[in-house]
Amino acid sequence: MSIEPGEYARLRRAAERLSGVPGVGKVEIAGGAVRLSLPPVERHELAALAVAGQLNAQLPRTHPDFSARGDTALEAVGLGRLCRPDLLVFAETALESGRPTLAPHEVLLVVEIVRQSAEPAGAGDYAAMGIPFHLLVDPRDGTGVVHDEPGYTSRKEFAFGDTVTVGPWTIDTSGLLTYA
């Protein structure tokens, strides 16, 4: 979905104002609207830490000077999309740009961990952005999906306890906890 530049700029200003409101978790732009979510619960954060730890242990071998971080936003202005995935894998030099967000071409992997009371974000936006890999982890039922191949034509489902391959990385999901 594309959006008129002036409309996106208006939404972006609103998102910036809302991001400073106490108690608000993610502030994103999708589908022509600003979307808010509550802060995550502890098990959500534990899953993010576990996946980030495994990725950061492997990145020096596969992609030196890259890291998996959860404190950076991703923006595709042409698609009208501002998102704050739980983790992004990108070159640390991208942080030197002075921009407040990463551009899609700077990102190798997006990791989304489904929040307890929310529907999962669609992988279609990340595919449209050209991001090579997407990992969806769903602690609501202890499952997940790896999307890869151009346009995410490959979809590999897994259950917590499996070891999954995401591009050149391997993630052991046996330590992930469900919300229940």
Rank of each mutant, 00 (worst) to 15 (best):
A68F: 05
R35A: 10
A47T: 15
A14C: 06
L74A: 11
A47I: 00
G130M: 08
L18D: 09
F66H: 15
L36V: 09
R69V: 11
W169I: 01
E45A: 12
P5V: 08
G167C: 06
Y179V: 10
Q116G: 00
G23P: 05
G70A: 07
G32Y: 09
A47F: 01
A121W: 00
H63T: 02
V41A: 09
A94Y: 05
F133C: 08
T93C: 10
L11I: 10
T93N: 10
L136H: 06
V27D: 03
V107N: 04
Y8S: 10
P60E: 08
F90A: 08
S37Q: 02
A159W: 03
A180G: 13
G31L: 00
G70N: 11
P60G: 05
A159S: 14
V41Y: 01
F133Q: 13
F133S: 05
F90T: 10
Q58P: 04
L102C: 08
P139C: 13
G98E: 11
P60N: 07
G98H: 04
T101G: 00
F90K: 07
A30N: 04
V89H: 01
A14G: 01
I29R: 07
H44A: 04
Y126R: 07
E7V: 15
A68Y: 05
P60D: 09
G32V: 13
S2F: 02
Y126A: 05
G25L: 06
N56R: 11
L136S: 05
R84G: 11
T153N: 04
L18I: 13
T72Q: 14
G98I: 03
L55W: 06
L108V: 02
P168N: 08
A94S: 15
T170A: 11
G144E: 04
T165F: 03
G6L: 14
Q58L: 09
E96A: 15
H147M: 12
A57N: 03
V114Q: 00
P168L: 04
V145E: 13
A91Q: 13
E157V: 03
V107I: 10
E96L: 14
S37R: 07
I3Q: 08
M1N: 10
P40T: 01
A50N: 13
A50G: 00
L79F: 03
R115W: 00
P85C: 06
Y179M: 06
E112G: 05
H147V: 08
F133K: 01
Y179A: 10
F133Y: 15
P40H: 02
V24R: 05
G122A: 15
R10G: 12
A128M: 12
S37C: 07
L136Y: 04
G31T: 09
V111E: 02
A128C: 01
D162P: 03
P39Q: 12
P5A: 13
E28M: 12
Y126K: 01
G6M: 07
G70Q: 08
S19Q: 15
Q116P: 02
P64A: 08
P39N: 10
A91H: 15
D138R: 01
A127D: 11
L82W: 04
